[in-house]
C-alpha cells in the first residue's frame, strides 16, 4: 500500500519535472529539474528493488553529468531564446508528425499484455542468496563481458575524440619538464660559500648562474629555466 502510494508520488513528480526540463525558460532551471527527475527515477529504482542502479543514477547522473550540464549552461553564453527561434514555425509540422506516430504506436502497443509466465522466462533471474549488486557484477563480468569491454572501448574512443577535436597546444603554455627538473645539477642552484665573519650577505658578490640555453626553439618554455619557482629554499645563495 505504502509502496504503491510512494510509486505514484515519485512517478508523478518524475513526469512533471521531465516536462519542466523541456519547457522551462531558464536553462539553469531546466538542469535543476533534470536533477529532480533523476532523483525521482532513482527512487523508482529503489522501489523496484534495484538499489545498485538507483545509486549509480544518483552518483553518475546527478553527481557528474548534471553538474557538468550546469557548468556548461552557466559558463557558455548560449542564447537559448535564439535557438528556439524556429520553434513556432516548425511546431505545426512537428506536432502533426509526432501525433500520427504516437497514435500509431498507441494502436500497436495497446494490445500488449504481459504474459502471466513472463517472470519465469527471464534471462538471468537473481540468485536467491546474493543481493543485486553482486548479481549484476557476476552477470556483467561473465555472460556479457564482451559487451562490457566494447562499452569500455566506446568510452575510450569518445575520450580520444574529445582530445583530438579540442586540445590545442599553445606555444605560450607552461609545462612542467620533469626531465629538466631531475637532470638538474646541484651546482646549478646551490653554492656553498665560506662567509668571512662580520661580512653581511649583501656585501658578498657572486656572478649569476648562467642561464641554460633554451632546449628547442619550438619547445614550450620551461617554467623554472631561470631558477624561478619550485625550488623552495635554494634561493638564499643566489641572492645578491
Amino acid at each position: 500500500m505504502i509502496a504503491s502510494i510512494a510509486f505514484y508520488v515519485f512517478a508523478a513528480i518524475l513526469l512533471v519535472s521531465a516536462a519542466m526540463v523541456v519547457t522551462a525558460r531558464n536553462p539553469v532551471h531546466s538542469v535543476l529539474f533534470l536533477i529532480l527527475s533523476f532523483f525521482n527515477a532513482a527512487a523508482l529504482f529503489l522501489l523496484a528493488g534495484a538499489e545498485f542502479l538507483a545509486m549509480i543514477l544518483v552518483i553518475v547522473y546527478v553527481g557528474a553529468v548534471a553538474v557538468l550540464f550546469l557548468f556548461v549552461v552557466m559558463m557558455l553564453d548560449v542564447n537559448f531564446a535564439e535557438l528556439r527561434g524556429g520553434f513556432q514555425r516548425y511546431l505545426p509540422v512537428g506536432a502533426t508528425v509526432g501525433a500520427v506516430l504516437f497514435v500509431e504506436l498507441a494502436l500497436v502497443l495497446g494490445g500488449w499484455q504481459i504474459a502471466p509466465d513472463a517472470g519465469q522466462l527471464r534471462f538471468a533471474p537473481q540468485p536467491p542468496d546474493v543481493h543485486n549488486t553482486a548479481a549484476l557484477g557476476r552477470l556483467i563480468y561473465t555472460d556479457y563481458v564482451l559487451l562490457f569491454q566494447i562499452a569500455g572501448l566506446v568510452l575510450m574512443v569518445a575520450m580520444i575524440g574529445a582530445i583530438v577535436l579540442t586540445l590545442r597546444e599553445r606555444k605560450t603554455s607552461r609545462h612542467q619538464s620533469i626531465a629538466a627538473q631531475v637532470g638538474r645539477d646541484v651546482r646549478d642552484t646551490l653554492e656553498l660559500v665560506n662567509m668571512p665573519l662580520g661580512v653581511g650577505v649583501s656585501e658578498f658578490y657572486r656572478p649569476l648562474v648562467e642561464q641554460p640555453p633554451p632546449l628547442h626553439s619550438d619547445q614550450p618554455v620551461i617554467a623554472h629555466a631561470g631558477g624561478g619557482h619550485g625550488d623552495g629554499g635554494h634561493h638564499a645563495a643566489e641572492k645578491r
Binding site: I150, A151, V154, I160, G161, V164
Partner: peptide, 13 residues
Amino acid sequence: YMGLELQSLALYV
C-alpha cells in the same frame, strides 16, 4: 548496437 556505436563514434571524429 554496441558494434554500431563503436564504429559510428570513431567516424564522427
